[in-house]
Design a protein around this nucleic acid. Structure first.
Lengths: 137, 137
DNA sequence: TATTGTTATACTCTATAACTATA
DNA sequence: TATAGTTATAGAGTATAACAATA
């Protein structure tokens, strides 16, 4: 691997850990784990079925069942019947869940926006474009 | 928050999740959780004391005690006495731990290098520089 | 007194395998 | 048969609070 790769890869790994920390710090004051915040934020674009949601979040369906159970007990999400398939359900946000998801999203979004405030437009564009390549968009 | 922020923040969050998935996929075949792989890779620059290590990894010392216990049982890390302080210990990699840490590091590093292979030099530099600003280097 | 690391406890996240109900 | 989701189980990560030994 070339030296330029080492540098870029190192940067990306550093960035991942930094963003993970930010995510955790943003979720905690809201009484959410990072993964719960993630689920709630995904559902802002929802509702989704369990299988679909498990693919989006890269976790097993059974793991998701546990998460949804806990969030449903707190009345942040709801299992809605799927009119087209009696086996399936749609996971949606309750009013309280929507509010909390908005807060979580706003909080970490603002934190990242602060950290990137100093970046010039050209660098922003380069980063956005690079991410597009990396995530295969 | 301005539209340019929304775009950049969205990209960064996407990137974080993508890198997390890569990290998990790289660790798993080696019999390591992502966090275990992280700890082992940090120790490549080690050894470190528990308090120092907990700060590096942004977890509580007691959480780290659990992790080190498990990895020590598998003989991947060792608790070495600190000659200067009888309360403290230094966590270091065993020979097997070093080998595994190298493998983990190489695996995800190669995966990321593949994904970024198409990026031109100017974009690489922009990303590295942007990350420097974000993580406060 | 302050710090280092551990223990005890409780909860969350996670996967695998087996299961029920429906398609 | 195949798919949607759940249950049972076990292991791993996490934090809080209280603790022992040493500084």
């Amino acid at each position: 691997m070339a030296a330029q790769d080492t540098e870029l890869v190192g940067s990306l790994v550093q960035l991942m850990h930094k963003l993970q920390d930010l995510y955790a710090e943003s979720s905690r004051p809201l009484g959410l784990t990072p993964q719960q915040a993630h689920l709630l934020c995904v559902l802002l674009a929802g509702p989704f079925g369990m299988t679909e949601l498990s693919r989006i979040m890269s976790i097993e369906r059974s793991s998701l069942t546990s998460m949804v159970d806990r969030l449903e007990r707190r009345e942040l999400v709801e299992r809605l019947p799927d009119p087209a398939d009696r086996r399936a359900c749609r996971i949606g946000l309750s009013a309280a869940g929507t509010k909390l998801a908005d807060q979580a999203h706003t909080t970490y979004t603002d934190r990242i926006a602060e950290l990137t405030a100093a970046l010039p437009a050209t660098q922003r564009k380069a980063v956005v474009s690079a991410v597009g390549v990396i995530v295969g968009a």
